[in-house]
Design a protein around this nucleic acid. Sequence first.
DNA 1: AAAAGACTTGACGTTAACGTAAGAGGAATT
DNA 2: AATTCCTCTTACGTTAACGTCAAGTCTTTT
Lengths: 160, 160
Amino acid sequence: MAMELRRPERTFTIRQLCTEFKATPRALRFYEDKGLLTPARDGMNRVYSYKDRARLILILRGKRVGLSLQEIREILELYDEGDEAMSQNAHSLKKFREKIVVLEQQREDIDGAITELQQACERLEGRLAEKRPDLLPKADDYDQMLRARLDGHAEMAIGK
Amino acid sequence: MAMELRRPERTFTIRQLCTEFKATPRALRFYEDKGLLTPARDGMNRVYSYKDRARLILILRGKRVGLSLQEIREILELYDEGDEAMSQNAHSLKKFREKIVVLEQQREDIDGAITELQQACERLEGRLAEKRPDLLPKADDYDQMLRARLDGHAEMAIGK
DNA sequence: AAAAGACTTGACGTTAACGTAAGAGGAATT
DNA sequence: AATTCCTCTTACGTTAACGTCAAGTCTTTT
């Protein structure tokens, strides 16, 4: 009977998660050091479950939006922690609400930065078209950009 | 005749810009070191123009959306550089387009993170309301949050 | 059995973006 | 004149988030 590679019982090696998410083993061990991941062991070797993988996804996204590992850990702890340390949680609640405000501001910043960059690109293209049209990107370049982009999304979508 | 503190001829000391934008002198000098700012001098002392201040605003926003100082510098250089180094610019163009893609992804991430945090907050509040309603934030707290938020925006809007 | 690959644990190195402390120069206040 | 205050430069310290060896174990391949 073939292994069921898509079922929740499925486990992952460190290398598998790394290639899937373009991380390094060092990074995953580091997250473990900091208490963000706690994979099982097979002898010495780490064995990551689907839950571990889900946590890793949250970690990486948290990083992309500028959260520190410390902040990410606090969020993750909400998911497994039963409910001891309630007064701690009151504090977490406050911090989360503040973080939401920061993120909303950050989204505005990003929108601004995007339009800014687009204007800069247009100015650049204008000047290049005028003086050095030979340096303008070829259609191929855009093709490749789009491909890379789609690949990335596909990986996320189907879990490789 | 009173000094015209709102006109473009107006200049700023390092401390003024720092208090306006909640930065430190060390940071501004650091940006200068890295070539992101080049204020004039009055003897030894730095004198920042309106243009310098505008650049600083861009620097800080760039930082908030996760750009490195190096990347921010490349963007800023587009604004003063006449048009030597055209082939350099072809490279910049490519990098900017890539950065736009990254930022768009980042905005999605932020939206995701916001909803995630909001759910976490709701779960937390639910548990707190059930077991320790005394720890729930008071109306005052939210008042204060909103005030802080509005203050922040006001500062940006009216340039203090 | 020997070599080649993954995995492991230290332990030290690195980079970005400042912080911090020391020492000195002018301007303003007492 | 002395103190206070702001600024300057120089230089070493710091933190986060890993990178990069080194040295060992286990498994698989040759």
